[in-house]
Design a binder for these strands. Structure first.
Lengths: 231, 231
DNA sequence: CATTTTTTGTACTCCTGGTTAAAAAACTTC
DNA sequence: GAAGTTTTTTAACCAGGAGTACAAAAAATG
């Protein structure tokens, strides 16, 4: 039986391929890498990673609603057909961009906590790093924080993920603060759980300050005051 | 010359009145209050204050882009014709709603600073008040903070206003902190300017925490830690 | 009562933004 | 080279959302 165009081939990778004769078709994902290490069909003409990175920048600075598809596609350097085929839809693209941010910008920042210094030293370094980040003139703030705000009404999806990331960050900080306390670096009676929540709060606040284009002196004031509590 | 319907009467208050005969019309704003203290024309059938309050609630919880006209009109209980006549357009309505928020919710909160206690006591009360506000289950956070974020890319208009309100709040706090310092309520070397920025930052952070539906314990931790610095 | 001024309600327009359709292009496999 | 599979391109499509037109209604004026 020869396959002809006209009817949807259920199971074909992108569900956009057709046969002329009606019937139930069993379609295999042919397009896995062959013995030459090449895919079948027309090869991708854009770099998915690069495109995603560009999309991330746009979403990061403009938010989900604020970023139009046109704008995204222009930044990604591809046409809508390619985007929809590669990523699904706008929300899926946002989700991917959010993941990318978490993997790169966000969690990489948290690695400072495992630096060479003592627990408290590392925490203080992280806080100072936030300050430097937010005082950069083209700072887009924090993508996670922005996501929490824009999707705050939604119970799951990327909204839930963003809340979990903040919670995770809080947990990591609490852990580190406990280590600091055990090492006698915190004053007596200091509460690691409360301090962790406080630090996450400071980070979220800095995001707003950055977007409000607060002057450097104010942001430095925030950092200095925060560090005072970690003395 | 009798005026007839059909052609726009340039100068008529709402530019929606017509004459049948073409020509240049000189139209006077007749409809100022007359000797009966009444306007001419059909009287408003809705309470502008009430409608604005309803719009404020919607904008506050959903943001500018997030609030559709349908939704706003439903909440306001009027039809679009009335809304556009009374307020101008969606942005103007938002601006009015923002003003209303500042006058009521926001600046009223700042009045706590002029309460009966000492300067420092009043500041501490304000911080605690933030905590109570944000832990309420239906808390919509802070409209000013939300506005700063959503309009962060825009140089003027309500965006600028919102940034100024934050700055104003910071100035007021700095002033109060100086009073506290003069009264010997702050530790030696405390920096009122830095502390003021820090407190505004905490407030902005709490807004995010509220929208992230952080647990009460975390928010209390933020408040407690913040108050520590004001001891 | 006729006229003027205003608000109201309904229908409509216009536009933008997300998404899909369909065919052409580019490649592999047979 | 023909057939098969995928990406690219271009042109629509469609829904919803902001805003407008206009006639009808409701009041004051004189």
């Amino acid at each position: 039986m020869t396959i002809q165009r006209g009817f949807l081939l259920v199971g074909s990778k992108n569900l956009n391929y057709y046969s002329k004769t009606p019937g139930l078709y069993l379609v295999w994902p042919f397009n896995k890498c062959n013995h030459h290490g090449m895919n079948r069909g027309r090869p991708r003409q854009f770099d998915e990673k690069k495109a995603l990175l560009a999309a991330m920048e746009v979403f990061w600075s403009k938010g989900f609603e604020g970023a139009s598809c046109d704008e995204l596609l222009a930044a990604m350097g591809i046409k809508c057909g390619s985007m929809y085929l590669a990523f699904g839809d706008k929300q899926a693209l946002y989700d991917r961009a959010f993941d990318l941010y978490c993997e790169t910008e966000f969690l990489r920042g948290m690695e400072i906590l495992d630096g060479p210094g003592t627990p408290l030293e590392n925490i203080r370094t992280l806080v100072q790093c936030w300050g430097e980040h937010m005082t950069q003139p083209d700072s887009k703030g924090c993508f996670v924080s922005n996501t929490v705000i824009e999707f705050s009404k939604q119970p799951d999806g990327v909204a839930q993920l963003a809340r979990q990331v903040l919670k995770r960050m809080q947990d990591v900080l609490e852990n580190k603060l406990k280590q600091a306390a055990d090492a006698g670096e915190l004053r007596d009676g200091a509460n690691p759980a409360a301090l962790a929540a406080f630090l996450v709060n400071t980070a979220n606040g800095l995001n707003v300050m950055a977007r409000a284009r607060a002057d450097k002196k104010s942001i430095q004031g925030v950092i200095d005051s925060t560090l005072l509590i970690l003395a």
